[in-house]
């Protein structure tokens, strides 16, 4: 017995096996390091070159001198305004669609078709969304609205409304999928409990399912905001302006300032794009480009971070749900 064991021992520790282990280990680590170092390099460059530009002045002033000097306030304002408008459109639609898919559709043919459509929508290049926005929202919906409502040239032009709508379509799959996941994570037993107490399906969804899925839905919403805030292509033709000497604000009844959805707007990612490609003096504006990039990246990072914090918070809360 002992002898047989000792005969086997050298095989168990053969050098070949050990080498395999080491080589594959090193390779895996190396591949994992590539994206990490790429990210680190980009972040390092942006922070090093952009940090100097970030001043209070830079964040709160209008661009000056043909956008070679001054701040980027209209861009920050425009980004915030359009993402807000986008999420107001996309969230109700996406949540409603997800509720339909999880609670009502069953798993029939129609369900699978819609699921496929949602997944494909997520894979469409963003420039296609931009063109879709022009073709569908501005030229088709907008022009026809103008025609019917006799509003002259109000809807049928690029403006914040259509840019936000285009972005909303872009992030819809994100919201639908994350909401679906959140709804599916609510245990079936919770629905049964509510139904068995005499609640209707809607009462159950409203009182039991949605409150418990809140965390997941919010996470999805924040992720889609961060996605929408960074997109350039969909707004390229649908409402973004190269330069505007004013904020897209209108005074309701002449007093209350609100965002004007029919105005064009400046936006961070688009601003970076034009500063880098179409600036009067691309070298002189380099600090502005880096500064703007830093602001944009910080914004999306912040949003992603919020989403992560939310997710952890709600997962903890859900963890105490005994299923």
């Amino acid at each position: 017995m002992d002898q047989a064991l000792s005969l086997n021992l050298p095989k168990l520790t053969s050098r070949r096996i050990l080498w395999n282990e080491i080589v594959s280990d090193v390779l895996v680590r190396f591949f994992a390091l590539i994206p990490l170092s790429a990210l680190a390099f980009i972040m390092y460059m942006i922070v090093r070159k952009g940090a100097g530009t970030i001043t209070w002045h830079f964040l709160t002033q209008m661009p000056l001198n043909g956008m070679t000097e001054g701040g980027i306030f209209p861009c920050i304002f425009g980004t915030l305004a359009i993402t807000l408008m986008m999420i107001l459109m996309a969230l109700p639609l996406g949540v409603a669609a997800a509720i339909y898919l999880t609670e009502f559709s069953g798993h029939g043919m129609f369900f699978r078709v819609i699921r496929a459509a949602v997944n494909n929508l997520a894979g469409v290049p963003s420039i296609v969304f931009g063109l879709f926005g022009v073709g569908f929202f501005i030229l088709f919906v907008g022009r026809n609205l103008d025609h019917v409502l006799k509003t002259g040239m109000l809807f049928g032009q690029p403006c914040m409304l259509w840019a936000a709508a285009t972005l909303a379509v872009l992030v819809l799959p994100v919201i639908i999928v994350s909401t679906e996941e959140a709804l599916n994570a609510v245990p079936q037993s919770q629905r049964s409990a509510s139904l068995a107490l005499g609640a209707t399906k809607w009462q159950t969804i409203w009182n039991v399912v949605l409150p418990q899925a809140r965390g997941g839905i919010l996470t999805g919403a924040i992720l889609s905001i961060s996605r929408g805030a960074g997109e350039t292509a969909p707004i390229l033709f649908t409402g973004c302006a190269y330069f505007l000497p004013r904020l897209p604000v209108v005074h309701l009844f002449g007093v209350i300032p609100i965002v004007n959805p029919f105005d064009q707007f400046m936006e961070l990612s688009y601003h970076i794009f034009i500063m880098a490609t179409q600036s009067l003096d691309a070298v002189k504006t380099l600090p502005i480009q880096y500064g703007t990039t830093l602001v944009l990246i910080s914004l999306t990072f912040l949003l992603n971070l919020t989403a992560i914090v939310f997710r952890i918070h709600f997962r903890k809360k859900m963890g105490t749900v005994s299923i």
Binding site: S189, Q190, S194, V208, K317, M318, T320, S322
Partner: peptide, 12 residues
């Protein structure tokens, strides 16, 4: 006709 389930399922 009330119902009590196998696995206790209080709402959170």
């Amino acid at each position: 006709v009330g119902m009590v389930f196998q696995k206790q399922n209080p709402f959170p």
